[in-house]
Structures are given as structure tokens and as C-alpha cells.
Design a protein around this nucleic acid. Structure first.
Lengths: 336, 336
DNA sequence: TTGAATAGCTAAAACGTTTTACCGAATATA
DNA sequence: TATATTCGGTAAAACGTTTTAGCTATTCAA
């Protein structure tokens, strides 16, 4: 029952032509190579009849191209990355490319390992949400002229293609919104990572306070440890809200921090209302269905994915070196 | 700058030995093949020094094995599938395998296309949440002795490995819970797909009603069209709840139906309470944070992933034909 | 001392393609 | 008519591995 797949040799034999001829035909070079229509037809019929598919591995070995794009993110199950993954996959598939993905969990060593692995698989291009410490590996890809697009995280030391979101403006706008409705004690809940996308959010918050002549109060900024369990974060937030009863607005710098925040409030029986406003980062059903509905900063996932893919294919479709682009898209503040 | 990767030939030259010897060494067959420790050491040092990684494509071509497992699901951005993807990836990675994934959007033709593509990539195993109409393609994989594990969806006509959840019992229990708290008019909101995992949920609902001497009322079962837009579903649900004010409990057969349901209730300003209970399918933050908290049927994602992976590797680690297993795991009813 | 076994290593085939270089016949060009 | 060009195709190398079969020199057993 275990029927071995047909090879190009089998097709050539059946059609009574050479392997070369079959190769030309299945690669659409038949006319260019002066193959007669009779032979073309004969071969194509046999190919269809037996359902022959060229072995992609052999093809990759010979051509150096695998028609695979690697997608490396922190965690594929994070809704933001999952959405990007889905959109990128769809767009790449239409152009004949497949996605192979992996999660780094923010470990630079895993990043290194993955890049080496993908290199040995002759992957054609890389879409990476980078971790700090992986600069050398990413640079080595670019040295080998492999198309690379970074997204979400920015690595300032790397002259790479990048697609991201204007987090400074997003949190500036969010904070401004609070200030303009006369909230006086605006808290910021963020994480203790020193990566650009996170520090940008803090800067936006600070600058907006400044613009409204509100003092920046250190104790209203909570930086929760990156890998902390949710329960602990909730406790920490309960602590913050209890200790600083003057807080009348809070901006959460990530999706899951907002969720922990709402959990904390629920636990305290504290309501979100005009005396205590909340803005979350990355919109989701959770925030739409919450009572009351929660405002949120929404990242333009569709645009991000589109831009990533177009940058990749711009490089894939030419042998020339294309200028690197840094694209920063605006986020959208959804007020509810 | 574009430095070409080292090949086994380069290593052989540098070490002044044959390609064969290098191959034996990097594959851990050195002692078995009587290579002297001096040579082993020399080669290993060169390998490390230049950072040589065997070309996986050439390896695949020669051995027929790619160390890649395909994961084919309906939609990778669906939280259930995204979680499974993440867990499967992690477990496979530890055993030296990578995941390549794709979404079918429930189109059998895309499934066919994907399977052919993955065959031509010499993928080693397949994890599939199948669509109806793909039976032939899946069977062909099994005929070629490729390890295959189906999950989530069950295809009764196929004697395949399967990992799923006891949906009959889950909705039986959920409905029983309603009945035992004296809800009399229990509605079921489901989709119009005739796939086992969905019809099972209906059967569980029916049987539980029967057990409590409650009549099965056709008009309390709403089957929303599979690909319907969310807004329309919400309208339909508003209609249902308005028309049948006697409804005092509703079981939602999927995650997103429950979300649509909660949106509908919010729109109607109708509260979830003892006079109107709700149970959702697939737990999530949305339900924990909702006011009041929403009860939910939780699928054991971790166990599902573990079982899938263990079934895959059971097949991958032997040349013998292993008996197919159908594993049905219990869901957990989380009452809130 | 001889034959067999073992230690230490290698040449070459094979995996399934793509592509370069070339060939003979027919046709066009001068 | 002689020569160039086009037509219709093919042989063989190459991509980077793994693996089979075998080779020589040394050690061992008798």
C-alpha cells in the first residue's frame, strides 16, 4: 500500500523524453526552450494523471531556495502574535510561500539556535520579533543577504527593516485623554523591560503629564517584573490601588497587565467610572464586554502584517540590495 | 561580506580526512566506525571553530526525513489552536523537531493542497484538525506510513489516531447543572455544522433534558450559520432572547458564540443572574472578568497537546505499525 | 608463519532536482 | 551553394549529505 512518490525520472520514462525536458516543462520554460507542443502536452497529461509533485527538498538543495519564510516571535499563543501569524501566513501563501514558526520565550540563546536551524533549512526570509542579545545573529542573516524584517520590538543598534507602532504617541494620546478629562493622578502600569517599545510608552506618558502641568510621580509608575505570575501581579496592583487612593486613572502598558488590573479591581470591588478611568493596551473582546467597556489602544494588526509581507517580498523579488525601511504605524485610541 | 556556509567538504579538507569520516563523527557514529580519538578530536574542534551546521536540506534529501512536523488547523489565531500550537511546538522542539503550520479556513481544497505541499517537503509527521472532505488525503498519508494524529474534530470514516474531548459529557454536565438549579427553559446556541464534536454537544444537551424530564423544545435551539459575521449573530441572539422571554439558561457551544451572546445581553441590558444563567465553551479571560463571572467548559489544552505529541513520537520512534488510538479526554466544568 | 580478524579510514553511489553546455537536423540567409 | 540560425531536444554536473562496500595495515590466534 505504501506507494512511493513519482519522481521526475518516472515521468520522463513514461513520456519517453529526457529528465531535462520534463524539468523545463514543469517549470514553465517549455516555449523558451523550444519544446514542441506535442511533447509539452504529452508530459503535462502524464504529470496530471499520476499527480506528480516535484520534490521540494531536492529543489531546495539545487536552487538554494526553499519557499519557506521563518516567523520567530516571543510566544505564538499571545493574541497579538497569533493574529500577525495568521495574516502573514495568508499573504505569504498567496505568493507561494509557507511559514515556519517558533517561539523564543525571550531567550537570546533560543533565538541563536533557531536562526542556525533555519539557516540549515535554507529558509528564504525571516520575520522576527527580536530579543535583545540576538543582534549578532540577525546581522549575520543580513550579511548573507537574506531578507529580514523585524517587527514589534526595535533594536536600535541594527540597521534593519522594521515595522512597528508609534508607542510614544499612543501613550501620549492616552495620557492626554485622561488629563483632558481632569484626571489628576494618573498611574502607569508597565513592565521592567528596557526595550524601546516599552520605554517609549513611559516617555509618552511622562511628556503628556508635562504638557498638562501635571507632576510626574515616581510612586504612580509600577513596573512589574517581566516573568512574574499573574496572581502576584494582581496582588501588587491591589497594593498599588489601596496605597494610593488618589489614583483616578490608570494606563496599562500591555494587554495582560490590563487584564491583571481588571482582576485586581474586581477583587477589590472597585469600579471603573469617571472617578477611576482605565485604558488598556491591545484591544480585545475582554475589554469590549467588560462592564463598563474599557478603552484601549489598538495596534493596526492588518497594516502591520501587510507592511511586513510587502517588505519581505520587495527583497525576495530582486537580487539588488534594497534600502532598509523603518515603518512606524499609528496606533488607534478607542474610547469607550 | 556574504560568506557562504561551510560544507562537510570544507571540514574534511581542513581536517585532512574524508567526507565520510566527518559525516560519521558529526552523526555520533565515530566509535562504532572505529575512528581514532585523535581524528575525532581534530574534526570536532574544526566543526566548533567554524560553526559548521550540516545542511538540513541535503540531509533530508538523502535520508527522507526532514525533522519537521506539520500542524494543520482551521485558524491559528483562534486561542484554542494557538495554545495547542505553542504547547506542541515546545514539546516537539525538545525532541529535535520543528513545526510548520497552516490554516485551512475549513476549505477541503486548501487541506488537499497543503498536504501535497507538505508531502513534497518530506515532512515527517502530521497533526491535523481535519475538515470534512479531506478523508482521502489523510488516508493517503496513512498509507504512506506517515505518523498522523487528528485532533479536535473527529472523522468517523477514518481509522486514525485521534485526540479529543468528551463533548457529549461536557454539555450533558452543563445542562444538568442548569436543570439541577431548577432552570426550566434551557436554550442551546450552536452552529450549523454537522461535525461530530458539534452534534455531540447537542446530544448531551438533549439527553440531559430528558434525564430531568424537561421537554426538548426545537425553538430553544439556535443554530447559527458557520461563517456568519459577528454583528449578525448578535442580532439573531437578541431576537432569540426577546422572542422567548421564558429562557432562564443558555449553553453556548463555542467560545465565540458565547462572546456574541454576552454582547447581545449587554446590548439588551439584560443581566446574567440566577434567573438567567449562562455557560460558555472554552474558558478565557473574557469570562473570568465578566460581571458576573461566567461559568465555562474548559478543554484540557495541556493534556491534549501532550497526548498528541506522545502519539506522534510513538510512531516516529518505531518502524513497526502501531495500533491506532482514539483518546477522549474529559472537559472540566468551571462553575462561577 | 600464516590466515583471520580488527582498526582506521575512504571512494563512490544515491537522494531528486535544475541548469549548462552541447548536439544534430531543419530552416533561413547571403 | 555555403553558412548561419533556429528548432527540438539531451547528457552530465552540481547541490550537500548519508551510507555501502571495500581497502590497507596492524594485531591476533593457532
Amino acid at each position: 500500500m505504501s506507494t512511493k512518490a513519482y519522481s521526475i525520472k518516472d515521468i520522463a520514462q513514461k513520456a519517453n523524453v529526457s529528465i531535462t525536458t520534463v524539468s523545463f516543462i514543469i517549470n514553465g520554460k517549455a516555449v523558451e526552450k523550444n519544446i514542441s507542443t506535442a511533447v509539452i502536452k504529452r508530459v503535462e497529461e502524464i504529470v496530471k494523471a499520476v499527480g506528480y509533485k516535484p520534490n521540494q527538498v531536492a529543489r531546495s538543495l539545487r536552487t538554494g531556495s526553499s519557499k519557506i519564510i521563518a516567523l520567530i516571535v516571543e510566544d505564538i499563543s499571545n493574541p497579538f502574535f497569533a493574529s500577525i501569524a495568521r495574516l502573514v501566513e495568508e499573504k505569504a501563501y498567496k505568493r507561494g510561500y509557507k511559514i515556519i514558526y517558533s517561539s523564543t520565550e525571550n531567550f537570546p540563546e533560543k533565538m541563536t539556535e533557531l536562526i542556525n536551524l533555519f539557516k540549515s533549512m535554507q529558509v528564504d526570509a525571516y520575520i522576527i520579533s527580536p530579543v535583545q542579545g540576538a543582534e549578532k545573529d540577525i546581522q549575520s542573516l543580513m550579511n548573507e543577504r537574506k531578507p529580514v524584517v523585524l517587527f514589534d520590538r526595535y533594536l536600535p543598534s541594527l540597521a534593519a527593516n522594521y515595522v512597528g507602532v508609534d508607542h510614544f504617541k499612543a501613550s501620549y494620546d492616552a495620557t492626554t485623554h485622561f488629563a483632558s478629562t481632569y484626571q489628576k493622578h494618573i498611574a502607569l502600569v508597565t513592565i521592567d523591560l528596557e526595550v524601546q517599545q516599552i520605554t517609549d510608552r513611559q516617555e509618552g506618558y511622562k511628556k503628556a503629564l508635562l504638557a498638562f502641568d501635571l507632576p510626574f510621580r515616581e510612586h504612580l509608575v509600577l513596573k512589574v517584573p517581566f516573568n512574574q505570575q499573574k496572581e502576584e501581579t494582581v496582588e501588587q496592583l491591589v497594593g498599588l490601588f489601596k496605597e494610593h487612593k488618589e489614583i483616578d486613572a490608570v494606563l496599562f502598558a500591555t494587554n495582560y497587565l490590563a487584564i491583571s488590573g481588571l482582576s485586581a479591581l474586581k477583587k477589590m470591588d472597585k469600579l471603573v467610572n469617571d472617578n477611576f478611568k482605565v485604558i488598556a493596551y491591545d484591544d480585545g473582546e475582554v475589554f469590549k464586554l467588560h462592564s463598563p467597556q474599557i478603552s484601549a489602544v489598538e495596534q493596526p494588526v492588518e497594516e502591520i502584517a501587510e507592511k511586513i509581507v510587502s517588505l519581505i517580498f520587495k527583497q525576495l523579488n530582486t537580487t539588488e540590495v534594497v534600502a532598509k525601511e523603518q515603518v512606524v504605524l499609528p496606533a488607534k485610541l478607542i474610547l469607550r
